[in-house]
Computed example of a mutant assay.
Amino acid sequence: MGSTKRFDGRVIAVTGAARGIGLAIARQLAEAGARVAIGDLDAGQAAAAAATLPGTAAGFALDVTVESSFTSFLDAVEAKWGPVDVLVNNAGVMWVGRFDEETEQATRRQLEVNLHGVIRGVRLAAPRMRTRGRGHIVTVASAASKLAPPGEATYAATKHGVFGYLSAVREELRGSGVKLSVVMPTVVDTPLAAGTSTGSVDMLTPEDVASAVVGAIAKPRFEVTVPGYVGPLARAVSVLPDALRVLVYRQMVPNQVVEANQDSRASYEKDALTTNNNNNSGATS
Rank of each mutant, 00 (worst) to 15 (best):
E223G: 00
E223D: 05
V224S: 03
T225W: 10
T225H: 13
T225K: 08
V226D: 04
V226S: 06
P227F: 06
G228L: 08
G228C: 09
Y229V: 08
Y229Q: 04
Y229T: 03
V230S: 00
V230C: 00
V230I: 05
V230H: 02
G231P: 02
P232M: 07
P232H: 05
L233D: 00
L233V: 02
A234N: 06
A234S: 14
R235K: 13
A236M: 05
A236S: 06
A236T: 03
V237Y: 01
V237T: 00
S238F: 02
S238M: 01
V239H: 07
L240P: 11
L240A: 01
P241E: 00
P241R: 00
P241D: 04
P241K: 00
A243V: 07
A243D: 04
L244N: 10
R245T: 08
R245P: 15
R245D: 11
V246S: 12
L247I: 05
L247A: 12
L247T: 13
V248H: 06
V248T: 12
V248P: 15
V248K: 02
Y249C: 10
Y249G: 11
Y249N: 08
R250M: 04
R250L: 06
R250Q: 09
Q251Y: 06
M252K: 01
M252D: 00
M252P: 08
V253N: 01
P254N: 02
N255L: 10
N255R: 03
Q256F: 13
Q256P: 15
Q256E: 13
V257S: 09
V257C: 14
V257E: 14
V258I: 10
V258Y: 07
V258H: 11
V258G: 04
V258M: 10
E259D: 15
E259T: 15
E259A: 11
N261Q: 14
Q262M: 13
Q262S: 11
D263P: 06
S264R: 11
S264D: 14
S264V: 02
R265Q: 05
A266S: 13
A266Y: 12
S267R: 05
S267Q: 11
S267M: 06
Y268K: 09
E269W: 04
E269K: 03
E269Q: 07
K270S: 09
K270C: 03
K270A: 12
A272S: 10
L273N: 03
T274S: 15
T275P: 12
N276T: 14
N276S: 15
N277D: 10
N278S: 14
N279P: 14
N279T: 15
N280E: 12
N280I: 10
N280A: 12
N280L: 11
N280P: 15
N280K: 12
